[in-house]
């Protein structure tokens, strides 16, 4: 879901841009050590894999009822290139999409990068990181694909709601259902494609290192953050949002748009922080 320019209010896009820019700069550096390459050696690989994601979206997967879906790719990139490199590739894709295809705006690029490149990749990678070894491996890859798409889409919707795009409750349930379905499709495609790739050369799939308790804790926190975002989505009405913070009505916080913005932003920053910590943690364990 690429948000175009003009949909987010100034505080929302400004905050998200301010978060996304250092995040991408940091991962761009991180990616080089992840690929064990101190220089530009692996740049062609990242570029060509970006082209691969573009091209793979031309391949239709029948998903029943005469419709078809296609790969989104964040999770697949994360388990083949590593999460930081995957973030860089997805960011490059989003920039080209915004520039050439008018898929997503430029002012809101930070929002789209956070939703799809940063959160989309990290949410997709975490399950694999936690359970990518042993029996639950296929399930972890499926779950990764699911989380990646569901998290990106819910986050995008949350940003729109916080920006005051009005939405009826039924519509929100409909969207939530849609995200669930897209998530399942992405999970199934990612799992099937991973099997196919592994069949050709198992070295193309990065091995998941054993998870440590801290990683698990961070994952739980991340999941809680996602849940919070989900609740924020499901509650366009400010009263439901306020119900999240006990006593906030009595504390005299004025109702209305401002509250919604502040609460929504707080939820997103929390979620982002969880993701960053998770990413940092993963990176450190990888390099250790």
């Amino acid at each position: 879901m690429h948000i175009p320019d003009g949909f987010l209010t100034t505080p929302v896009w400004a905050t998200l841009d301010a978060i996304a820019i250092p995040a991408v700069a940091w991962t761009a550096r991180r990616a080089q050590s992840e690929l064990e390459s101190p220089d530009d050696r692996r740049i062609p690989l990242l570029g060509v894999m970006g082209a691969f994601v573009f091209a793979a979206q031309m391949i239709n997967f029948p998903v029943g009822l005469g419709t078809s879906g296609h790969l989104v790719g964040g999770t697949l990139l994360a388990i083949t290139l590593g999460p930081a490199a995957a973030v860089v590739v997805m960011t490059a894709i989003l920039i080209l999409q915004a520039l050439i295809f008018q898929d997503g705006g430029l002012v809101v690029l930070g929002a789209n990068v956070l939703n799809m490149a940063v959160v989309g990749v990290l949410a997709g990678y975490l399950p694999y990181r936690l359970a990518g070894r042993g029996k639950a491996r296929s399930a972890a890859i499926f779950l990764g694909g699911f989380c990646s798409v569901a998290a990106s889409a819910s986050l995008a919707l949350a940003e729109l709601l916080v920006s005051g795009v009005p939405m009826a409750r039924q519509l929100l349930w409909f969207s939530a259902g849609l995200f669930l379905v897209s998530g399942v499709i992405e999970g199934a495609i990612t799992a099937a494609a991973t099997r196919a790739i592994e069949g050709m050369n198992p070295l193309w799939i990065r091995e998941a290192r054993p998870a440590r308790p801290v990683t698990i804790a961070v994952a739980v926190l991340g999941a809680a953050g996602l849940l919070a975002a989900g609740i924020a989505v499901a509650s366009s009405a400010p009263d439901a949002l306020q119900a999240l913070l006990p006593g906030s009505k009595n504390a005299g916080i004025p109702e209305g748009r401002l509250t919604k913005i502040v609460l929504g932003l707080a939820a997103m920053i929390l979620l982002y922080a969880a993701c960053v910590i998770a990413g940092r943690r993963i990176a450190r364990q990888r390099s250790a």
Binding site: L45, V48, M49, A51, F52, A55, A56, I59, N60, F61, P62, V63, L71, L76, T80, A188, I189, A192, A193, R195, A196, I197, G199, M200, N201, W204
Partner: peptide, 18 residues
């Protein structure tokens, strides 16, 4: 089977790209 064929195609495309 068509779903699996498409997954295979994605796999081949991945291999070629790599």
């Amino acid at each position: 089977p068509r779903f699996h064929a498409a997954a295979g195609a994605v796999g081949v495309l991945f291999a070629r790209s790599w």
